[in-house]
């Protein structure tokens, strides 16, 4: 005790350090969260008119064609909404021009589109989708990822028989065992016609979210990663 006591064995020193580290990490996280929240705010129909990219675009994207392409400028795949155009800095971006019919219409107003995806999200939660599927890669691993489900090649092959892929997906959701494609099939969750339409709208909207290139090489069935070398 009499000899000099090292700071390293001082309880106080470590307590202060722990408090400092915890405090500053929390404050940084809060600042980063404010910034992320601003960037992740859902866009509006105006942004789309002005061709401004948003990480999470306005739900009116359901009026447009959606694609998923490699942008050399960003260095990964990005959603391409309404056709592509050149970026002034190089690479490609969404043009927000090419429309396509979604359940027979391509003029959903911002309000209508928001109502639709509101019901879609509620249904997705009410039916517990996340405990079999993954959404944006999070959830259970018993069924396929739904992040880009709208763009999955499976629906392209089924679309002609149903007059468009939105009808095919909606038909599937209302009675999955009937259209089962694998032994591990989805149960009938009592999804109504309106709910099915809303869920399809949500899936289309979700495929337009910029996920920093996840899933990589989506849709390139033969030799995905290696094909690009």
């Amino acid at each position: 005790m009499e000899e000099k006591v090292s700071v390293w064995t001082s309880n106080r020193f470590w307590r202060r350090s722990a408090t400092w580290v915890t405090g500053v990490a929390s404050v940084l996280l809060i600042f980063l969260t404010f910034d992320s929240m601003a960037q992740m705010k859902m866009g509006s129909a105006k942004d789309i008119e002005k061709k401004i990219d948003r990480r999470i675009p306005s739900p009116v994207v359901i009026n447009y064609t959606i694609d998923y392409k490699l942008d050399p400028y960003r260095g990964h795949e990005i959603p391409i909404i309404g056709g592509e155009m050149r970026r002034p800095e190089g690479g490609i971006k969404s043009a927000y021009e090419k429309k396509e019919k979604f359940f027979g219409r391509d003029d959903y107003s911002e309000k209508e589109a928001r109502e639709l995806i509101h019901k879609g999200k509620l249904t997705i939660q009410a039916k517990n989708c996340m405990d079999c599927h993954t959404l944006l890669g999070n959830g259970a691993y018993y069924a396929p990822d739904l992040t880009k489900a709208w763009l999955d090649p499976t629906w392209e092959t089924l679309a002609p028989a149903y007059n468009g892929k939105e009808y095919a997906i909606a038909a599937f959701l209302q009675d999955p065992p009937k259209m089962a494609m694998h032994e591990r099939k989805m149960p009938n969750l009592g999804i109504t016609k309106e709910e099915a339409k809303a869920v399809v709208a949500y899936l289309k909207f979700m495929s337009a979210i910029d996920t920093n290139g996840f899933p990589r090489n989506f849709g390139k069935i033969k030799g995905a990663v290696d094909a690009r070398k």
Binding site: K4, V7, R12, F13, R16, V24
Partner: peptide, 26 residues
């Protein structure tokens, strides 16, 4: 850097106080 650097200041501050001996020993 933002997180770790100030700990050096905390160290010297504690050292100063210890040397002054105005702390209850913990």
């Amino acid at each position: 850097t933002l997180i770790v650097l100030p700990m050096i200041w905390i160290y010297f501050d504690e050292k100063k106080r210890l040397e002054r001996g105005d702390l209850p020993n913990e």
